[in-house]
Design a protein around this nucleic acid. Sequence first.
DNA 1: CTGCCAGTTCAGGTGAACTTGAGGTCAAGC
DNA 2: GCTTGACCTCAAGTTCACCTGAACTGGCAG
Lengths: 142, 142
Amino acid sequence: MKAVDIAELAKVSGVPASTLRFYEEKGLITSIGRRGLRRVFAPTVLDQLALIALGQTAGFSLTEIAAMFGADGAPRIRRELLAAKADELDRTIRRLSAMRDGLRHAARCTAPSHLECRTFRRLMRAASARRSWARDGRKPAP
Amino acid sequence: MKAVDIAELAKVSGVPASTLRFYEEKGLITSIGRRGLRRVFAPTVLDQLALIALGQTAGFSLTEIAAMFGADGAPRIRRELLAAKADELDRTIRRLSAMRDGLRHAARCTAPSHLECRTFRRLMRAASARRSWARDGRKPAP
DNA sequence: CTGCCAGTTCAGGTGAACTTGAGGTCAAGC
DNA sequence: GCTTGACCTCAAGTTCACCTGAACTGGCAG
């Protein structure tokens, strides 16, 4: 496996050089050395980048993702963390699904104003209720 | 219906006073007057706040939400916009579902490193591929 | 040897959605 | 009448994930 410089890495990964530098500064990736001033990366960085992309899509912050790499750059992922994120995603998905259905309904609902549509108002209440207990961190009793 | 001052509105709506002021500045809500210095709001603002919360959960930005109110504060929502957002949500949901399933698998997968798990690598590839064409705005041919 | 050009560092900017802090004001209670 | 405390304004700060620009450096072509 041969080393790649930042331009090549940017090209094959699709990640802009500026972002690669930013990631290195944040400790998400590591350059294996320099050729002159130029960073040189091991090809395994591609895996790390893919992992970063994955983590982002899953909703992890860059800081959280950084914590998932060992000093060697190999992923050290706690499985409970993954399960927890999966559960979180599940909740998000449920919420978004309700939202999508509500939007679909509202889109074809014939009430003169959306405010007069029951489904729409139910959604509105749900959304504001969610915010209320998101503010103080507790869910009201059902 | 009686008017409410900002403290009361904050209490019943769960939205901090600072946020209410911010929303007013952004044109999302309107105070009906002042009592001394204090803002006084019409109770209908509660509906607007609920609508804002709804829009946010649906993924609209505050600017987009602002555009959904007429000058009178009554919602003027283009139905096509709702349908479009519903479609967008649909795509998001699909993506997140795949992610959730992948995470669940990875959480109980017994491969020594996640990098050696097929499912995990498939997810990784999907995530980086998605980013690549998100960067230049086109989806590769299937 | 010289000059080019793609890389480098470092400071600062972006935008979204708010929050915080300093200093000012006013209606109400004593 | 004076104090108090909640609200006011305006500027600036915060977080996240980057991007931009200016000034600089070094390998390589000629």
